[in-house]
Design a protein around this nucleic acid. Structure first.
Lengths: 170, 170
DNA sequence: TTGGAATGTCAACAACGCTGACTTAAAGTG
DNA sequence: CACTTTAAGTCAGCGTTGTTGACATTCCAA
């Protein structure tokens, strides 16, 4: 197979892991792994008339209670109209509470109710179980590499969001 | 923070990378990274009245020319009805050719046309560019760990699909 | 040859992205 | 205080892509 990057040498270090074939493998690994990553929560959600979007909203409201709709928008990277549909059903069903801001009455601050917390726990337990099994299987060094590559793949904007979330939790 | 797994020791080896907080970081990293992973092809596709589903179909038809609809179904993990809509538009637009099987006339064998190949190249070039930049930034060991974790996260079924694709390309 | 299984297609529906138009509240300007 | 601009959130409608159900065609085995 003609592969321009297969024989690149830079600074005396082999870059064989940069061949098109290696990159294709990484692309397919991301595709299949993301399916596994979302499979367990998806299973729990289906039949509740909820979907992946509800899961994401619940996850980040749990991580940052009192966050505003606008802040959540930036984290999730969707339009406010799209998020609104999801939030409305969660509020109607009593999983999320939306309080009008005191300082700025335009803002709505979001909190999980007790039943919202219960669902969050159920979902994240399932997702963490898979993650834990994978981590345990491959060991700490592989996990460190995993996180490095993922972070390098993000858009700069997303990288900032990701790091901010980590800082807020020590 | 109460964290049951924070202080687990197994076989004398520290498992601090298995704390709920570490797992949460991994989950969020997957979320943000997948956005970056799909961002470039999505940008190219938007305005062509195509979406991510078309990209996936094109990718795997490229990798396995002559594959059947049923085989593609198993790889993509969607229903045949869902895939059919996508394939129909691709065939109508002349990007994919669907040939009735000679041995088994129920089957349709799928091939990219020249323009289909051109679009595939455009899409995968963009995606590989981001991948290559990330790989180059973090180095071969991190990439090895990245792939190990992703593979461990897959469902067994997906893992087999993933490995089969690799074998078919040596 | 006939009944069942496998392959693929058509139709209709649900989840969740999107844009556009709107209401309400805050902030800036005279 | 009145008027305009800006920001936050909501409602309506559309497109992509997932789903299930019904169906035609083809193959195979009893």
């Amino acid at each position: 197979m003609a592969d321009a990057s297969a024989s690149q040498i830079l600074g005396g270090e082999s870059l064989l892991f940069l061949t098109d074939e290696q990159l294709r493998q990484g692309i397919e690994a991301m595709f299949f792994a993301y399916r596994g990553f979302t499979a367990d929560p998806d299973r729990i959600l289906q039949g509740l008339s909820y979907g992946r979007a509800h899961h994401r909203a619940i996850h980040f409201i749990h991580c940052a209670p009192g966050t505003t709709v606008n802040n959540l928008l930036n984290i999730l990277g969707v339009t406010k109209q799209s998020l609104n549909r999801v939030l409305r059903t969660l509020v109607e069903d009593g999983l999320v509470e939306s309080r009008v801001g005191r300082a700025d009455k335009r803002e709505r601050h979001l909190y999980l109710t007790d039943s919202g917390d219960a669902l969050e726990k159920q979902l994240s337990d399932a997702q963490r179980a898979r993650m834990r099994a994978a981590y345990r299987q491959v060991g700490p060094e592989a996990v460190a590499g995993f996180k490095q590559v993922l972070e390098a793949m993000m858009d700069p904007e997303m990288q900032r969001q990701y790091q901010k979330l980590r800082e807020n939790r020590g």
